[in-house]
């Protein structure tokens, strides 16, 4: 496993502990662990305003944790997470809710509220955070549904929707309050190619139209490279590579090459690193005699 984190990381601008930065999102030496298990190690990254960034990596590489750090669902053990010029890890509960109000998040499987209709799902953040009259809520919801091309579904329940449709409803819900920051957690998982293409196109269109800063966590390389501005590769809790989509496609790094082209063999091995050999486990080696 090549440790490229040093050579690939351009952000060594260690300014004072001031929060003024021209990036919208900035990670400074962030480490995170669940108990003993280390998830992220010394992450540095910076995402400017209005940029669409993808964070790629294999399953269990810690990329979803990056999103949870941005939304303040978890706090780092070390380092700073700065969003919109404010330290997320130092926010009080009230500030955190304030922070999340300006943020939209699309969850892996949509996470629609199963006990609410499509209309009530999209209306949920509007009703919770504004005191708009019902007629205005109604109009706003229909506009959001139209934006994802699903006007006319408002009376359905989430159980009656296909996977692609519920993902798009969830997107409509996430953009209901016109967030300044959109987070996408594996938006393409478990979709057929047509729905997948539709969602990818929609995400691109919406983020361009709204001018939001977007962070997408994904392992779907091809669709992501078509819609994002910049890519970070995460492996074993570290950023191993980064660049624009064109740079990534042309990258000479064996790791990136393996990931982008989905090769079975390369720096990443399939097998779990067992401490004993298979022959020993099966009692065939006789080495212990």
């Amino acid at each position: 496993m090549p440790n490229n984190s040093g050579s690939f990381c351009p952000i060594f601008l260690v300014i004072e502990n001031s929060v003024s930065t021209d990036s919208f999102i900035e990670f400074r030496n962030v480490s995170f662990a669940y108990g003993e298990r280390s998830i992220l190690k010394n992450i540095n990254l910076s995402i400017p305003y209005g940029r669409f960034v993808a964070i790629m990596g294999g399953s269990g590489s810690g990329k979803t944790t990056l999103l949870r750090l941005i939304s303040g669902q978890v706090h780092p053990q070390q380092g700073e997470v700065i969003v919109g010029g404010r330290h997320v890890e130092k926010m009080s509960t009230r500030e955190l809710f304030e922070h999340r109000r300006r943020m939209g998040m699309l969850f892996q499987f949509g996470a629609l509220f199963t006990d609410l209709s499509v209309f009530d799902n999209v209306a949920f953040p509007i009703r919770e955070h504004t005191h708009l009259p019902d007629s205005m809520v109604h109009d706003l919801v229909l506009m959001k549904l139209a934006a994802v091309g699903l006007r006319g579904t408002e009376h359905l329940m989430p159980a009656e929707l296909s996977g692609g449709m519920s993902r798009r409803i969830a997107l409509a819900r996430a953009i209901a309050l016109d967030p300044a920051l959109m987070l996408y957690d594996e938006p393409f998982t478990g979709l057929d190619p047509i729905s997948l293409g539709a969602i990818a196109h929609l995400i691109k269109k919406l983020s361009d139209a709204l001018g939001t800063t977007s962070v997408m966590v994904t392992h779907d390389v091809q669709h992501s490279l078509n819609i994002v501005d910049y890519v970070y590769f995460v492996a074993n809790g570290e950023i191993v590579a980064e660049g624009t989509p064109d740079e990534v496609r042309a990258s000479s790094s064996p790791w990136v090459h393996q990931f982008v082209y989905g090769e079975a063999d390369g720096p990443v091995h399939l097998a779990y690193p067992a401490t004993t050999s298979l022959a020993d486990d099966l009692g065939l080696g006789g080495a212990h005699v």
Partner: peptide
Amino acid sequence: AEIGLMKATEQLDAMSVMAVNPIAR
């Protein structure tokens, strides 16, 4: 079962990311 499933399908997470406290709602 209902609350557990809401948790398993990330509905509670979604709620708290939407700045709505799931305990209150």
